[in-house]
Design a protein around this nucleic acid. Structure first.
Lengths: 176, 176
DNA sequence: CCTTTATTTCGGTAATGACTGAAACAACAG
DNA sequence: CTGTTGTTTCAGTCATTACCGAAATAAAGG
């Protein structure tokens, strides 16, 4: 797939852009988009040629995507090169991304926050107020963490159904 | 508040770090942390002195925070400088951040995706498969968008209650 | 082994984004 | 109007991050 049609190129470009805004390297996001849309698994060389990105950059980016578990390697019979394919199921993909981001970026902050509160100097003036604020923030983040943990247990089909409830959602949530 | 105690400094630093990982400028996040923890509203000069960041940088960052509606200006009697304070309610804060991020980063991608699908060349080989994949992605993002829209309507106290359900959450979600 | 083919690592470079200080601007007081 | 105080804009600099190509490494096959 050395040549891309307009729609595909546009998708890859936009996906890359969205990536950067969410703190994800542009090239990494573009490669993911390419693999997602590609009809067949691709090897590094093909990706490099298609996106006009250096071979080494592709290597690093693929390693990252594999680390995130949204891209995996597959083998082709009679070819010892690695081929890469993106997770096809978008729900599964979202699950994994949420999982990874939480683990890498959310949890460490919660830990840090807890530590901050621990080292608060009681003697300092206004420390009461500070403790209150930090504790509130921590409580919020822990709550979010808990809710996430529960949602994680719900299988995708059930989530789908829930999502389809539309305007009934507030009632389900609110009504217990 | 020219001098910061250890816990506060640590909080500000960590908050800034978390910001960068989520695609938010480090200084912007640090200023937000400072204002969040500060017992009183602060003016730009004070922020500049406390964080050792240039006056102009503070100005730009504050403008951004105000644009996100998680910081607002307040006036001090007999002082024509602007004072800034962060939203104190963490739930409200989360709401607003979600709202803004969706508007700025999620919605445009949905729009782009829709456009991509529109410009897909039917004649091209394998376009069927591409359309299927892009449409699936679009459907997913629209679903997420819809769910968000519904959750937005649920008042914070109800959300709090829901969050407290703990392990009952899967049943509430799943059981309709 | 040696050769071929694929991948990764790494030092240097380019591009991007953040930051600063100076200058322009705005608002007010006298 | 003029001086003072506060804010914003902007051009240039600095720091960070992404990226490349070359060299090193790894994994076969002959």
């Amino acid at each position: 797939m050395p040549e891309l049609d307009d729609a595909t190129r546009s998708f890859i470009l936009h996906w890359g852009e969205m990536g950067t805004r969410w703190g994800i390297n542009r090239t990494v996001a573009q490669i993911h988009a390419l693999l997602f849309i590609a009809p067949e698994p691709m090897n590094a060389e093909e990706i490099s040629a298609t996106l006009h990105v250096s071979r080494s950059n592709v290597s690093t980016s693929l390693r990252e995507l594999v680390g995130w578990r949204i891209v995996r390697t597959v083998q082709q019979l009679g070819d010892r090169r690695d081929y890469y394919e993106a997770l096809g199921d978008v729900w599964e993909m979202a699950r994994i991304i949420a999982e990874e981001r939480k683990k890498r970026e959310f949890d460490p902050t919660v830990t840090a926050l807890r530590e901050c509160i621990g080292t608060l100097d009681e003697a300092a003036p206004g420390s009461e107020e500070k403790r209150r604020k930090l504790t509130e923030m921590l409580a919020f983040m822990e709550t979010v963490s808990d809710v996430y943990e529960q949602l994680r247990r719900v299988p995708t089909p059930a989530l789908r159904k829930f999502a389809k409830l539309g305007s009934k959602i507030p009632r389900v949530i609110g009504g217990g």
